[in-house]
Design a binder for these strands. Structure first.
Lengths: 257, 257
DNA sequence: AACGCGGTTCCATTTTTCGGGACTAACCGA
DNA sequence: TCGGTTAGTCCCGAAAAATGGAACCGCGTT
């Protein structure tokens, strides 16, 4: 307990839910006395973590969090350089590009921009997606030792998308291909109709890995063009490695001893 | 005091500063005992508000905040519709577009995307900028009663940018023009070399105002083209009003009594 | 007018938080 | 190798804040 942990519990609960919520909803959702929820939500709003719609009396995430969210990994040289290269790639090709990170068995979008070709879905920074049903995610998983991958995927999560790997064997097969080729592609997996190619790269000092992707409509981009895009991404990666150094071992956490 | 308000104080302090920070830095910056800072930072990291670089032992904003930041005003129909219209505008014209909000005498970017024309600066969501030195900001200020504007701008903030209004009189003159024309433009004001046109629109139910902008290089876009862009923005606004209704009175906060 | 619903306030009790100071680890220059 | 400095952690009694059950409020409904 403690006010801080309760506040964070509220934030976590709110994440991914409907964008606004009331006192009772929170109290019910977190099995918390109404009085506690009321007081805490009010405090959080006073502090700026939340704001309150004057009309509906409902709470929503506050502007402070928008500002802080933007700071996440901002200023890391590799991130900024990669992002700049991807913006340039979008300019040249017209396709949507972005950077995403691995978190458990999901990926989180760090940076993104829409392309000029019509692509229905815009995946904004902060959005989550299943890592196993995503070229981006598999690329990041590919950097982990097999044992670690196995650990994360037991049990194997259910996801009703025909093109996504449906079991651990299929996933490892896709990961194997990604390891062999240095990039991965996906088509109509987690996001219907959306296809992507991506490469993974890691900061040699911190070891943090990220995946750079190009996304497009699966219907309008042929095999040949996808290969070209993969080549461009690999080129971006090479130039980044040239500038920032390569990361050899794929240790996500510090090596001990 | 209380853990929550201290935690938020740390977040506010961190906002806009260097992306990572240590215990002593925070303790010094917030005049807080080292022990409190140490304990609190650790707690915040455990909760996920912050994360800690294993190598440098320094703290930085956590992924949770990235995810929450994205939720800010997400799902509000007017915001999403406006953003979609602006993405389309970027597709058609190649210029950077975005949405920003007024906060005191500053604006905060809510949504943005780079254009395909080279424009040096990308102003990402969450970024702040002086409202008075910005077409976007003046448009939003223009919606307030003059008395409220006067209150916010006494004293008039210093800003060393030649093209920005240098005193309250100049600001009101620019705001007057914005009110008359229904849009505003800026060129080489807060952001060197960057020019923009923008229109303001408000949600008729909540009264929240936002400004839609198109940004471009001041050197490469002539007067005529700027007028065309302004017309396009006004058209977007009209279509949004058509769909969501107009907001007549410009009351940002609740009217009392 | 009674009821349900969402929200707030009160206040005694319990639980955290607070923070000075001692402590440890790493680093640096002599 | 030593002393000094800097960064961060830990301990623990005192003090302050969080908690939550119950009463209460206002509103729209039955």
């Amino acid at each position: 307990m403690g006010a801080l942990s309760n506040a964070v519990a509220i934030l976590r609960w709110a994440r991914g839910r409907e964008p606004d919520f009331g006192v009772s909803e929170v109290a019910l959702g977190l099995a918390m006395p109404k009085s506690t929820a009321s007081r805490l939500l009010k405090d959080m709003a006073v502090q700026g973590l939340l704001e309150r719609d004057a009309a509906t009396q409902r709470y929503r995430v506050g502007m402070l969090l928008l500002e802080l969210g933007r700071q996440y990994r901002a200023g890391q040289p590799l991130v900024e350089a990669a992002d700049a290269a991807l913006i340039e790639l979008t300019r040249r090709t017209g396709f949507a590009t972005g950077i995403s990170l691995l978190d458990g068995v999901e990926i989180v979008v760090l940076r993104s921009r829409p392309g000029t070709h019509p692509l229905q879905v815009v995946t904004p920074p902060g959005a989550r997606s299943p890592a196993w049903a995503n070229s981006t995610g598999r690329n990041l998983l590919a950097r982990l030792p097999d044992a670690e991958i196995a650990r994360r995927f037991s049990p194997y999560p259910a996801l009703d998308r025909p093109n996504a790997p449906a079991n651990f064997g299929q996933l490892m097969e896709r990961i194997g291909r990604a390891r062999a080729r240095g990039f991965d592609e996906s088509d109509d997996e987690a996001l219907p109709g959306v296809a992507a190619v991506s490469v993974a790269i890691a900061d040699p000092t911190s070891g943090d890995a990220m995946s750079l992707y190009v996304a497009f409509s699966g219907l309008h981009v042929n095999r040949q063009r996808r290969r070209e895009l993969a080549a461009m991404l690999l080129d971006v990666k090479l130039r980044l490695i040239d500038r920032f150094g390569e990361e050899t071992t794929a240790e996500p956490r510090r090596a001990h001893g």
